[in-house]
Design a protein around this nucleic acid. Structure first.
Length: 568
DNA sequence: CACTAGTGCAA
DNA sequence: TATTGCACTAGTG
Protein backbone atom coordinates (compact mmCIF):
# COMPACT_ATOMS: atom_id res chain seq x y z
CA UNK A 1 0.00 0.00 0.00
CA UNK A 2 1.16 3.50 -0.41
CA UNK A 3 1.45 6.49 -2.59
CA UNK A 4 3.58 6.45 -5.66
CA UNK A 5 4.86 9.20 -7.83
CA UNK A 6 5.02 8.57 -11.52
CA UNK A 7 5.89 10.51 -14.59
CA UNK A 8 6.93 10.09 -18.14
CA UNK A 9 9.79 12.12 -19.46
CA UNK A 10 8.38 12.62 -22.95
CA UNK A 11 4.73 13.13 -22.29
CA UNK A 12 5.04 15.05 -19.07
CA UNK A 13 3.92 13.94 -15.70
CA UNK A 14 0.68 12.24 -14.97
CA UNK A 15 -1.05 10.39 -12.24
CA UNK A 16 0.58 11.71 -9.11
CA UNK A 17 -1.27 9.60 -6.56
CA UNK A 18 -2.12 5.95 -6.90
CA UNK A 19 -5.75 6.25 -6.04
CA UNK A 20 -6.23 8.57 -8.95
CA UNK A 21 -5.02 6.12 -11.55
CA UNK A 22 -8.21 4.38 -12.41
CA UNK A 23 -10.62 6.82 -10.88
CA UNK A 24 -9.46 9.71 -13.02
CA UNK A 25 -7.32 8.46 -15.84
CA UNK A 26 -5.95 11.59 -17.42
CA UNK A 27 -2.73 13.33 -17.99
CA UNK A 28 -1.89 16.29 -15.87
CA UNK A 29 0.84 18.86 -15.81
CA UNK A 30 4.08 18.81 -13.91
CA UNK A 31 2.81 21.76 -11.89
CA UNK A 32 -0.20 19.77 -10.79
CA UNK A 33 2.07 16.95 -9.61
CA UNK A 34 4.12 19.44 -7.65
CA UNK A 35 1.01 20.83 -6.01
CA UNK A 36 -0.34 17.39 -5.22
CA UNK A 37 2.92 16.45 -3.57
CA UNK A 38 3.32 19.55 -1.44
CA UNK A 39 1.27 18.44 1.55
CA UNK A 40 3.07 15.13 1.55
CA UNK A 41 6.60 16.33 1.13
CA UNK A 42 6.45 19.58 3.10
CA UNK A 43 9.47 20.94 1.30
CA UNK A 44 10.81 22.02 -2.02
CA UNK A 45 13.27 19.25 -2.74
CA UNK A 46 11.45 18.49 -5.92
CA UNK A 47 12.36 20.36 -9.05
CA UNK A 48 11.26 20.62 -12.60
CA UNK A 49 14.18 20.11 -14.93
CA UNK A 50 13.22 20.36 -18.54
CA UNK A 51 10.45 17.86 -19.04
CA UNK A 52 11.51 15.81 -16.04
CA UNK A 53 10.69 15.89 -12.40
CA UNK A 54 13.79 15.54 -10.38
CA UNK A 55 13.87 14.71 -6.73
CA UNK A 56 15.61 12.61 -4.17
CA UNK A 57 13.47 9.58 -3.59
CA UNK A 58 14.74 9.27 -0.06
CA UNK A 59 12.51 12.18 0.94
CA UNK A 60 9.57 10.03 0.05
CA UNK A 61 10.81 7.48 2.51
CA UNK A 62 11.43 10.13 5.09
CA UNK A 63 7.84 11.18 4.60
CA UNK A 64 7.02 7.59 5.41
CA UNK A 65 5.84 6.64 1.97
CA UNK A 66 6.29 3.03 1.06
CA UNK A 67 7.14 2.05 -2.46
CA UNK A 68 5.69 -1.39 -2.71
CA UNK A 69 3.34 -3.53 -4.69
CA UNK A 70 3.67 -2.79 -8.30
CA UNK A 71 0.45 -1.82 -9.99
CA UNK A 72 -1.26 -1.52 -6.75
CA UNK A 73 -4.54 -0.17 -7.95
CA UNK A 74 -4.76 -2.40 -10.96
CA UNK A 75 -4.13 -5.28 -8.62
CA UNK A 76 -7.12 -4.14 -6.65
CA UNK A 77 -9.08 -4.05 -9.88
CA UNK A 78 -8.05 -7.60 -10.69
CA UNK A 79 -8.92 -8.46 -7.12
CA UNK A 80 -12.43 -7.14 -7.61
CA UNK A 81 -12.73 -9.28 -10.69
CA UNK A 82 -11.64 -12.43 -8.85
CA UNK A 83 -10.50 -12.30 -5.24
CA UNK A 84 -9.43 -15.92 -5.09
CA UNK A 85 -6.34 -15.22 -7.17
CA UNK A 86 -3.32 -14.38 -5.07
CA UNK A 87 -1.23 -11.27 -5.45
CA UNK A 88 1.39 -13.17 -7.39
CA UNK A 89 -1.18 -14.39 -9.86
CA UNK A 90 -2.39 -10.88 -10.31
CA UNK A 91 1.04 -9.72 -11.38
CA UNK A 92 1.18 -12.48 -13.93
CA UNK A 93 -2.27 -11.51 -15.10
CA UNK A 94 -1.13 -7.95 -15.63
CA UNK A 95 1.79 -9.25 -17.67
CA UNK A 96 -0.56 -11.30 -19.80
CA UNK A 97 -2.79 -8.35 -20.45
CA UNK A 98 0.11 -6.22 -21.57
CA UNK A 99 1.90 -9.00 -23.42
CA UNK A 100 5.24 -8.40 -21.71
CA UNK A 101 7.08 -9.11 -18.51
CA UNK A 102 6.88 -6.69 -15.66
CA UNK A 103 9.80 -6.04 -13.39
CA UNK A 104 8.95 -6.08 -9.72
CA UNK A 105 10.41 -3.15 -7.83
CA UNK A 106 12.10 -5.60 -5.50
CA UNK A 107 14.51 -6.51 -8.28
CA UNK A 108 15.48 -2.91 -8.82
CA UNK A 109 16.40 -2.21 -5.25
CA UNK A 110 18.90 -4.42 -3.49
CA UNK A 111 17.15 -4.40 -0.13
CA UNK A 112 14.44 -6.82 0.86
CA UNK A 113 11.05 -5.47 -0.10
CA UNK A 114 9.64 -5.67 3.41
CA UNK A 115 12.47 -3.51 4.62
CA UNK A 116 12.07 -0.91 1.90
CA UNK A 117 10.69 1.70 4.22
CA UNK A 118 13.84 1.57 6.30
CA UNK A 119 16.30 1.71 3.45
CA UNK A 120 17.19 5.34 3.39
CA UNK A 121 18.71 7.14 1.78
CA UNK A 122 19.10 5.48 -1.59
CA UNK A 123 22.12 6.17 -3.70
CA UNK A 124 22.00 7.86 -7.08
CA UNK A 125 21.90 4.59 -9.02
CA UNK A 126 18.98 3.32 -7.04
CA UNK A 127 17.12 6.56 -7.50
CA UNK A 128 17.58 6.28 -11.25
CA UNK A 129 16.26 2.75 -11.22
CA UNK A 130 13.24 3.65 -9.16
CA UNK A 131 12.58 6.58 -11.42
CA UNK A 132 12.61 4.33 -14.45
CA UNK A 133 10.39 1.89 -12.70
CA UNK A 134 7.92 4.57 -11.75
CA UNK A 135 7.63 5.73 -15.33
CA UNK A 136 7.10 2.22 -16.58
CA UNK A 137 4.55 1.55 -13.90
CA UNK A 138 2.51 4.60 -14.73
CA UNK A 139 2.58 3.71 -18.39
CA UNK A 140 1.51 0.10 -17.86
CA UNK A 141 -1.21 1.19 -15.51
CA UNK A 142 -2.58 3.57 -18.09
CA UNK A 143 -2.72 0.75 -20.62
CA UNK A 144 -4.47 -1.55 -18.20
CA UNK A 145 -7.17 0.99 -17.42
CA UNK A 146 -8.89 0.56 -20.74
CA UNK A 147 -8.95 -3.20 -20.44
CA UNK A 148 -10.11 -3.49 -16.86
CA UNK A 149 -12.81 -0.87 -16.66
CA UNK A 150 -15.20 -2.61 -19.10
CA UNK A 151 -14.57 -5.95 -17.40
CA UNK A 152 -15.52 -4.48 -14.05
CA UNK A 153 -18.70 -3.06 -15.52
CA UNK A 154 -19.55 -6.30 -17.26
CA UNK A 155 -19.27 -8.19 -13.99
CA UNK A 156 -21.09 -5.45 -12.10
CA UNK A 157 -18.10 -5.02 -9.84
CA UNK A 158 -17.50 -1.44 -10.89
CA UNK A 159 -19.30 0.19 -8.02
CA UNK A 160 -17.54 -2.04 -5.51
CA UNK A 161 -14.27 -1.04 -7.11
CA UNK A 162 -14.87 2.67 -7.55
CA UNK A 163 -16.99 3.34 -4.47
CA UNK A 164 -15.28 1.09 -1.93
CA UNK A 165 -11.89 -0.31 -2.86
CA UNK A 166 -10.40 2.71 -4.58
CA UNK A 167 -11.32 5.23 -1.86
CA UNK A 168 -10.01 2.75 0.70
CA UNK A 169 -6.49 2.79 -0.73
CA UNK A 170 -5.75 6.26 0.56
CA UNK A 171 -7.14 5.39 3.98
CA UNK A 172 -5.05 2.26 4.31
CA UNK A 173 -1.98 4.16 3.19
CA UNK A 174 -2.73 6.72 5.89
CA UNK A 175 -3.13 4.03 8.52
CA UNK A 176 0.16 2.45 7.55
CA UNK A 177 1.89 5.80 7.73
CA UNK A 178 0.37 6.55 11.14
CA UNK A 179 1.55 3.36 12.76
CA UNK A 180 0.72 2.61 16.37
CA UNK A 181 2.82 3.43 19.41
CA UNK A 182 4.35 0.60 21.39
CA UNK A 183 5.62 0.83 24.97
CA UNK A 184 8.95 -0.85 24.31
CA UNK A 185 10.20 -0.50 27.87
CA UNK A 186 7.16 -2.36 29.13
CA UNK A 187 7.52 -4.97 26.41
CA UNK A 188 11.19 -5.58 27.25
CA UNK A 189 10.37 -6.08 30.92
CA UNK A 190 7.71 -8.55 29.87
CA UNK A 191 10.27 -10.26 27.68
CA UNK A 192 12.63 -10.75 30.63
CA UNK A 193 9.83 -12.08 32.80
CA UNK A 194 8.68 -14.56 30.17
CA UNK A 195 12.25 -15.65 29.46
CA UNK A 196 12.82 -16.56 33.08
CA UNK A 197 9.62 -18.53 33.27
CA UNK A 198 10.25 -20.29 29.98
CA UNK A 199 13.67 -21.33 31.22
CA UNK A 200 12.22 -22.67 34.47
CA UNK A 201 9.59 -24.63 32.58
CA UNK A 202 12.26 -26.11 30.33
CA UNK A 203 14.23 -27.40 33.30
CA UNK A 204 11.10 -28.84 34.81
CA UNK A 205 10.23 -30.56 31.53
CA UNK A 206 13.71 -32.06 31.19
CA UNK A 207 13.39 -33.45 34.72
CA UNK A 208 10.03 -35.05 34.03
CA UNK A 209 11.19 -36.41 30.69
CA UNK A 210 14.43 -37.74 32.13
CA UNK A 211 16.45 -36.04 29.39
CA UNK A 212 16.98 -32.79 27.56
CA UNK A 213 15.17 -32.24 24.29
CA UNK A 214 13.91 -29.39 22.12
CA UNK A 215 10.50 -28.42 23.45
CA UNK A 216 9.78 -26.54 20.26
CA UNK A 217 10.11 -29.65 18.14
CA UNK A 218 6.88 -31.55 17.81
CA UNK A 219 8.86 -34.49 16.46
CA UNK A 220 11.16 -34.75 19.49
CA UNK A 221 8.23 -34.11 21.79
CA UNK A 222 6.20 -36.92 20.24
CA UNK A 223 9.13 -39.26 20.86
CA UNK A 224 9.28 -38.32 24.54
CA UNK A 225 5.55 -38.50 25.15
CA UNK A 226 4.49 -41.51 23.14
CA UNK A 227 7.60 -43.69 22.97
CA UNK A 228 9.69 -42.93 26.02
CA UNK A 229 6.82 -42.24 28.46
CA UNK A 230 4.40 -44.56 26.67
CA UNK A 231 1.50 -42.15 26.92
CA UNK A 232 -1.42 -42.97 24.60
CA UNK A 233 -1.28 -41.05 21.31
CA UNK A 234 -4.59 -39.41 20.45
CA UNK A 235 -4.20 -38.41 16.84
CA UNK A 236 -1.79 -38.68 13.95
CA UNK A 237 -0.55 -36.07 11.56
CA UNK A 238 0.93 -36.70 8.13
CA UNK A 239 4.38 -37.22 9.62
CA UNK A 240 3.74 -38.65 13.08
CA UNK A 241 1.77 -38.30 16.28
CA UNK A 242 0.07 -35.00 16.99
CA UNK A 243 1.17 -33.02 20.03
CA UNK A 244 -1.16 -30.08 19.64
CA UNK A 245 -3.01 -28.32 22.44
CA UNK A 246 -6.04 -30.58 22.33
CA UNK A 247 -3.91 -33.72 22.57
CA UNK A 248 -1.82 -32.33 25.44
CA UNK A 249 -5.00 -31.34 27.31
CA UNK A 250 -6.20 -34.90 27.12
CA UNK A 251 -2.92 -36.15 28.63
CA UNK A 252 -2.96 -33.85 31.65
CA UNK A 253 -4.71 -36.45 33.78
CA UNK A 254 -2.08 -39.07 32.96
CA UNK A 255 1.19 -37.25 33.50
CA UNK A 256 2.63 -34.03 34.88
CA UNK A 257 4.60 -33.18 31.75
CA UNK A 258 1.76 -32.09 29.42
CA UNK A 259 0.69 -29.29 31.75
CA UNK A 260 4.25 -27.93 31.77
CA UNK A 261 4.38 -28.21 27.99
CA UNK A 262 1.15 -26.28 27.54
CA UNK A 263 2.42 -23.48 29.77
CA UNK A 264 5.70 -23.48 27.87
CA UNK A 265 3.94 -23.42 24.52
CA UNK A 266 1.85 -20.43 25.52
CA UNK A 267 4.80 -18.40 26.78
CA UNK A 268 7.19 -19.22 23.98
CA UNK A 269 4.51 -18.35 21.45
CA UNK A 270 3.96 -15.01 23.14
CA UNK A 271 7.68 -14.31 23.39
CA UNK A 272 8.80 -15.31 19.92
CA UNK A 273 5.91 -14.09 17.83
CA UNK A 274 4.50 -11.20 19.76
CA UNK A 275 7.29 -9.75 21.91
CA UNK A 276 10.45 -10.38 19.90
CA UNK A 277 8.59 -10.20 16.61
CA UNK A 278 7.00 -6.89 17.53
CA UNK A 279 10.11 -5.27 18.99
CA UNK A 280 11.95 -6.04 15.77
CA UNK A 281 9.39 -4.00 13.83
CA UNK A 282 9.26 -0.93 16.05
CA UNK A 283 10.65 2.26 14.55
CA UNK A 284 13.25 3.26 17.18
CA UNK A 285 12.79 6.94 16.42
CA UNK A 286 9.07 7.09 17.08
CA UNK A 287 8.34 3.87 18.99
CA UNK A 288 5.63 3.15 16.46
CA UNK A 289 5.03 0.01 14.39
CA UNK A 290 3.80 0.34 10.83
CA UNK A 291 1.99 -2.73 9.58
CA UNK A 292 1.19 -3.37 5.93
CA UNK A 293 -2.40 -3.97 5.00
CA UNK A 294 -2.90 -6.24 2.03
CA UNK A 295 -6.04 -5.13 0.26
CA UNK A 296 -6.01 -7.93 -2.28
CA UNK A 297 -4.95 -10.90 -0.23
CA UNK A 298 -8.09 -12.69 0.91
CA UNK A 299 -10.72 -14.63 -0.96
CA UNK A 300 -13.59 -12.98 0.90
CA UNK A 301 -12.79 -9.28 0.78
CA UNK A 302 -11.27 -9.01 4.20
CA UNK A 303 -7.98 -7.21 4.67
CA UNK A 304 -4.90 -8.94 5.92
CA UNK A 305 -1.95 -7.53 7.82
CA UNK A 306 1.77 -8.33 7.69
CA UNK A 307 5.17 -7.23 8.98
CA UNK A 308 3.97 -7.35 11.66
CA UNK A 309 0.52 -8.88 11.57
CA UNK A 310 -1.44 -6.61 13.91
CA UNK A 311 -4.71 -8.43 13.34
CA UNK A 312 -3.79 -11.33 15.63
CA UNK A 313 -2.51 -9.64 18.77
CA UNK A 314 -3.53 -11.83 21.76
CA UNK A 315 -6.52 -10.97 23.93
CA UNK A 316 -7.98 -14.20 25.31
CA UNK A 317 -5.56 -15.17 28.07
CA UNK A 318 -4.34 -12.87 30.81
CA UNK A 319 -0.71 -13.23 29.75
CA UNK A 320 -1.71 -12.61 26.17
CA UNK A 321 -3.47 -9.41 27.19
CA UNK A 322 -0.15 -8.20 28.56
CA UNK A 323 1.03 -7.93 24.96
CA UNK A 324 -1.99 -5.89 24.01
CA UNK A 325 -1.27 -3.64 26.98
CA UNK A 326 1.94 -2.53 25.25
CA UNK A 327 -0.05 -0.75 22.52
CA UNK A 328 -0.57 2.80 23.75
CA UNK A 329 -1.64 6.21 22.47
CA UNK A 330 0.67 9.18 21.94
CA UNK A 331 0.84 11.66 24.83
CA UNK A 332 -2.30 13.79 24.81
CA UNK A 333 -4.25 11.13 22.91
CA UNK A 334 -6.47 8.22 23.89
CA UNK A 335 -7.24 5.01 22.03
CA UNK A 336 -10.77 4.60 20.76
CA UNK A 337 -11.92 1.18 19.66
CA UNK A 338 -15.16 0.71 17.81
CA UNK A 339 -16.31 -2.78 17.06
CA UNK A 340 -19.41 -4.08 15.36
CA UNK A 341 -21.58 -6.17 17.63
CA UNK A 342 -22.21 -9.61 16.10
CA UNK A 343 -21.91 -8.29 12.60
CA UNK A 344 -21.76 -11.72 10.95
CA UNK A 345 -25.05 -12.79 12.49
CA UNK A 346 -26.71 -9.53 11.59
CA UNK A 347 -25.51 -9.99 8.04
CA UNK A 348 -26.88 -13.53 8.09
CA UNK A 349 -30.24 -12.18 9.28
CA UNK A 350 -30.24 -9.67 6.46
CA UNK A 351 -29.14 -12.03 3.70
CA UNK A 352 -31.48 -14.83 4.74
CA UNK A 353 -34.41 -12.62 5.66
CA UNK A 354 -35.20 -15.09 8.43
CA UNK A 355 -38.10 -13.52 10.36
CA UNK A 356 -37.17 -14.90 13.79
CA UNK A 357 -33.53 -13.86 13.60
CA UNK A 358 -34.49 -10.49 12.17
CA UNK A 359 -37.08 -9.92 14.88
CA UNK A 360 -34.53 -10.81 17.53
CA UNK A 361 -32.10 -8.18 16.34
CA UNK A 362 -34.83 -5.61 15.81
CA UNK A 363 -35.95 -5.79 19.41
CA UNK A 364 -32.35 -5.50 20.54
CA UNK A 365 -32.16 -8.97 22.02
CA UNK A 366 -29.04 -10.70 23.33
CA UNK A 367 -29.01 -12.95 20.29
CA UNK A 368 -27.15 -15.88 21.84
CA UNK A 369 -29.60 -15.89 24.73
CA UNK A 370 -32.51 -15.59 22.33
CA UNK A 371 -31.19 -18.50 20.28
CA UNK A 372 -30.82 -20.56 23.44
CA UNK A 373 -34.40 -19.75 24.43
CA UNK A 374 -35.61 -20.76 20.97
CA UNK A 375 -33.80 -24.07 20.72
CA UNK A 376 -34.28 -25.13 24.34
CA UNK A 377 -37.90 -24.02 24.48
CA UNK A 378 -37.44 -21.94 27.59
CA UNK A 379 -38.18 -18.33 28.52
CA UNK A 380 -35.40 -15.80 27.98
CA UNK A 381 -34.86 -15.39 31.72
CA UNK A 382 -34.61 -19.15 32.21
CA UNK A 383 -31.63 -19.60 29.90
CA UNK A 384 -28.65 -20.98 31.78
CA UNK A 385 -25.06 -19.94 31.15
CA UNK A 386 -24.34 -23.37 29.66
CA UNK A 387 -27.29 -23.10 27.29
CA UNK A 388 -26.21 -19.65 26.19
CA UNK A 389 -22.67 -20.89 25.63
CA UNK A 390 -23.90 -23.70 23.41
CA UNK A 391 -26.24 -21.43 21.50
CA UNK A 392 -23.31 -19.11 20.87
CA UNK A 393 -21.29 -22.02 19.50
CA UNK A 394 -24.14 -22.92 17.14
CA UNK A 395 -24.57 -19.34 16.01
CA UNK A 396 -20.90 -19.18 15.07
CA UNK A 397 -20.81 -22.65 13.61
CA UNK A 398 -23.70 -22.02 11.25
CA UNK A 399 -21.81 -19.21 9.57
CA UNK A 400 -18.94 -21.62 8.85
CA UNK A 401 -21.13 -24.49 7.70
CA UNK A 402 -20.28 -26.53 10.77
CA UNK A 403 -21.93 -29.92 11.11
CA UNK A 404 -22.81 -32.21 13.98
CA UNK A 405 -19.32 -33.68 14.25
CA UNK A 406 -17.66 -30.29 14.54
CA UNK A 407 -20.21 -29.00 17.01
CA UNK A 408 -19.90 -32.11 19.17
CA UNK A 409 -16.12 -31.61 19.22
CA UNK A 410 -16.20 -27.96 20.12
CA UNK A 411 -18.78 -28.44 22.87
CA UNK A 412 -17.59 -31.81 24.10
CA UNK A 413 -21.03 -33.38 23.61
CA UNK A 414 -22.23 -36.41 21.70
CA UNK A 415 -22.86 -36.41 17.96
CA UNK A 416 -26.50 -37.12 18.70
CA UNK A 417 -26.93 -34.14 21.00
CA UNK A 418 -25.12 -31.95 18.52
CA UNK A 419 -27.33 -33.14 15.69
CA UNK A 420 -30.42 -32.44 17.78
CA UNK A 421 -29.22 -28.96 18.58
CA UNK A 422 -28.66 -28.21 14.93
CA UNK A 423 -32.10 -29.56 14.07
CA UNK A 424 -33.71 -27.34 16.70
CA UNK A 425 -31.76 -24.40 15.36
CA UNK A 426 -32.98 -24.87 11.81
CA UNK A 427 -36.46 -25.55 13.02
CA UNK A 428 -36.59 -22.15 14.67
CA UNK A 429 -34.60 -20.34 12.03
CA UNK A 430 -36.10 -22.00 9.00
CA UNK A 431 -35.25 -19.00 6.84
CA UNK A 432 -31.57 -19.58 7.49
CA UNK A 433 -31.76 -23.16 6.26
CA UNK A 434 -33.64 -22.03 3.17
CA UNK A 435 -31.05 -19.37 2.47
CA UNK A 436 -28.23 -21.89 2.83
CA UNK A 437 -29.91 -24.25 0.37
CA UNK A 438 -30.74 -21.47 -2.04
CA UNK A 439 -27.21 -20.14 -1.91
CA UNK A 440 -25.69 -23.57 -2.57
CA UNK A 441 -28.01 -24.15 -5.50
CA UNK A 442 -27.21 -20.81 -7.02
CA UNK A 443 -23.50 -21.44 -6.56
CA UNK A 444 -23.77 -24.80 -8.32
CA UNK A 445 -25.62 -23.17 -11.19
CA UNK A 446 -23.50 -20.04 -11.63
CA UNK A 447 -20.19 -21.19 -10.21
CA UNK A 448 -19.88 -18.19 -7.91
CA UNK A 449 -21.42 -16.38 -4.95
CA UNK A 450 -21.63 -12.66 -4.20
CA UNK A 451 -21.54 -10.40 -1.18
CA UNK A 452 -24.09 -7.66 -0.60
CA UNK A 453 -21.98 -5.10 -2.46
CA UNK A 454 -21.42 -7.48 -5.35
CA UNK A 455 -18.00 -8.90 -4.58
CA UNK A 456 -17.63 -12.19 -6.44
CA UNK A 457 -16.05 -15.41 -5.24
CA UNK A 458 -15.79 -18.33 -7.61
CA UNK A 459 -16.40 -21.77 -6.14
CA UNK A 460 -15.76 -24.12 -9.08
CA UNK A 461 -15.24 -27.14 -6.82
CA UNK A 462 -18.90 -27.02 -5.82
CA UNK A 463 -19.68 -29.37 -8.70
CA UNK A 464 -16.73 -31.64 -7.99
CA UNK A 465 -17.24 -35.39 -7.84
CA UNK A 466 -14.87 -35.48 -4.88
CA UNK A 467 -17.16 -35.30 -1.86
CA UNK A 468 -14.79 -33.54 0.50
CA UNK A 469 -13.82 -30.97 -2.10
CA UNK A 470 -17.48 -30.38 -2.85
CA UNK A 471 -18.33 -30.02 0.84
CA UNK A 472 -15.52 -27.56 1.27
CA UNK A 473 -16.80 -25.50 -1.65
CA UNK A 474 -20.29 -25.58 -0.17
CA UNK A 475 -19.02 -24.23 3.11
CA UNK A 476 -17.16 -21.42 1.37
CA UNK A 477 -20.26 -20.68 -0.67
CA UNK A 478 -22.13 -20.13 2.60
CA UNK A 479 -19.38 -18.42 4.54
CA UNK A 480 -18.18 -16.00 1.87
CA UNK A 481 -21.38 -13.96 1.46
CA UNK A 482 -21.52 -13.51 5.24
CA UNK A 483 -17.86 -12.84 5.97
CA UNK A 484 -17.49 -10.85 2.77
CA UNK A 485 -20.54 -8.67 3.38
CA UNK A 486 -19.23 -7.87 6.85
CA UNK A 487 -15.98 -6.85 5.18
CA UNK A 488 -17.89 -4.67 2.71
CA UNK A 489 -19.70 -2.98 5.57
CA UNK A 490 -16.66 -2.09 7.62
CA UNK A 491 -14.89 -0.81 4.53
CA UNK A 492 -17.86 1.44 3.79
CA UNK A 493 -17.76 2.60 7.41
CA UNK A 494 -14.05 3.39 7.23
CA UNK A 495 -14.65 5.58 4.19
CA UNK A 496 -17.43 7.50 5.93
CA UNK A 497 -15.42 7.90 9.11
CA UNK A 498 -12.32 9.04 7.29
CA UNK A 499 -14.30 11.59 5.32
CA UNK A 500 -15.63 13.10 8.53
CA UNK A 501 -12.31 13.39 10.33
CA UNK A 502 -11.30 17.02 10.80
CA UNK A 503 -8.10 17.81 9.00
CA UNK A 504 -5.35 20.25 9.73
CA UNK A 505 -2.97 21.05 6.90
CA UNK A 506 -4.25 18.11 4.96
CA UNK A 507 -3.83 15.45 7.63
CA UNK A 508 -6.49 14.30 10.10
CA UNK A 509 -5.79 15.04 13.75
CA UNK A 510 -7.63 11.90 14.67
CA UNK A 511 -5.60 8.95 13.44
CA UNK A 512 -7.10 5.75 12.19
CA UNK A 513 -4.65 3.05 13.26
CA UNK A 514 -5.94 -0.45 12.70
CA UNK A 515 -8.78 -2.50 11.28
CA UNK A 516 -9.28 -5.96 12.71
CA UNK A 517 -12.17 -7.27 10.60
CA UNK A 518 -15.05 -5.97 12.72
CA UNK A 519 -13.05 -3.60 14.86
CA UNK A 520 -11.50 -0.20 14.25
CA UNK A 521 -8.81 1.37 16.41
CA UNK A 522 -8.29 5.12 16.40
CA UNK A 523 -5.96 7.49 18.21
CA UNK A 524 -7.87 10.56 19.29
CA UNK A 525 -6.71 13.84 20.87
CA UNK A 526 -8.20 13.82 24.37
CA UNK A 527 -10.21 16.99 23.82
CA UNK A 528 -11.81 15.55 20.66
CA UNK A 529 -12.88 12.24 22.14
CA UNK A 530 -16.53 13.13 22.61
CA UNK A 531 -17.27 14.39 19.12
CA UNK A 532 -15.09 11.78 17.43
CA UNK A 533 -16.76 8.91 19.23
CA UNK A 534 -20.19 10.25 18.37
CA UNK A 535 -19.43 10.56 14.69
CA UNK A 536 -17.61 7.23 14.49
CA UNK A 537 -20.61 5.49 16.00
CA UNK A 538 -22.91 7.30 13.61
CA UNK A 539 -20.84 6.35 10.57
CA UNK A 540 -20.46 2.72 11.55
CA UNK A 541 -24.09 2.16 12.37
CA UNK A 542 -25.18 3.84 9.13
CA UNK A 543 -22.47 2.46 6.88
CA UNK A 544 -24.99 0.37 4.95
CA UNK A 545 -28.69 -0.06 5.60
CA UNK A 546 -29.69 -3.61 6.46
CA UNK A 547 -33.00 -5.07 7.55
CA UNK A 548 -31.58 -5.23 11.07
CA UNK A 549 -29.76 -2.52 13.00
CA UNK A 550 -25.98 -2.34 13.00
CA UNK A 551 -24.59 -1.68 16.46
CA UNK A 552 -21.11 -0.39 17.22
CA UNK A 553 -19.62 -0.81 20.70
CA UNK A 554 -17.21 1.97 21.55
CA UNK A 555 -14.48 1.76 24.16
CA UNK A 556 -11.66 4.06 25.19
CA UNK A 557 -8.49 3.62 27.17
CA UNK A 558 -4.83 4.33 27.74
CA UNK A 559 -3.83 1.02 26.20
CA UNK A 560 -5.33 -1.56 23.86
CA UNK A 561 -6.13 -4.05 26.61
CA UNK A 562 -7.76 -1.99 29.33
CA UNK A 563 -10.61 -0.11 27.73
CA UNK A 564 -13.82 1.19 29.26
CA UNK A 565 -17.12 1.51 27.41
CA UNK A 566 -17.61 4.97 26.03
CA UNK A 567 -20.58 6.67 27.63
CA UNK A 568 -22.68 8.75 25.36
C1' DC B 1 18.52 -20.49 1.29
C1' DA B 2 13.75 -22.09 -0.10
C1' DC B 3 10.42 -24.87 1.09
C1' DT B 4 6.94 -27.78 4.03
C1' DA B 5 4.76 -29.28 8.30
C1' DG B 6 3.05 -28.46 12.76
C1' DT B 7 1.40 -25.31 15.77
C1' DG B 8 -1.23 -21.31 17.48
C1' DC B 9 -2.72 -16.25 17.52
C1' DA B 10 -6.89 -13.21 15.86
C1' DA B 11 -11.86 -12.14 13.85
C1' DT C 1 -15.68 -33.23 9.57
C1' DA C 2 -15.86 -24.79 10.97
C1' DT C 3 -14.24 -19.87 7.71
C1' DT C 4 -10.59 -16.22 6.78
C1' DG C 5 -5.76 -14.91 7.63
C1' DC C 6 0.04 -14.60 9.22
C1' DA C 7 4.17 -16.12 11.53
C1' DC C 8 7.04 -18.76 14.36
C1' DT C 9 10.25 -23.07 14.86
C1' DA C 10 12.02 -27.40 13.28
C1' DG C 11 13.34 -30.10 9.74
C1' DT C 12 14.55 -31.23 4.82
C1' DG C 13 17.00 -30.86 0.49
Amino acid sequence: MGLSVSWDKDQGAYIPLRHHYLGAPKQISVEQVLNALKPVLENDKIQKVGHNLKFDFSILFRAGIHMKNLFFDTMVAFYCLDPSRSGHDLKDLASEYLGRQLTPIEELIPQKSSRLNRSLPMDQVQIEKVSLYASAEADCTRQLIEKLDPLLKEKRCDSLFYQIEMPLIEILADMELNGIKVDTVFLKKLDDRFSLEIHALESEAYGLAGQEFNLNSSKQLAFILFEKLKLPPARKTKTGFSTDEEVLESLIALHELPRILLKHRELSKLKSTFIDGLLAEVDPGTSRVHTSFNQSGTATGRLSSTNPNLQNIPIRTEQGRMIRRAFIPEKGFVLLSADYSQIDLRVLAHLSGDPVLTEGFNRGADIHRATAAEIYHVRLDQVTDEQRKRAKAINFGIVYGQQAFGLSQSLGISMNDAQNMIESYFHKYAGVREWIEKTKQEAKLKGFVRTLLGRVRYVPEINSKNGSMRSFAERTAINTPVQGTSADIIKAAMIKIYKHLDTQSGRPQVKMLLQVHDDLLLEVPEQHLEKTATSVREDMENAIRLSVPLIADLKTGANWADMEPFKG
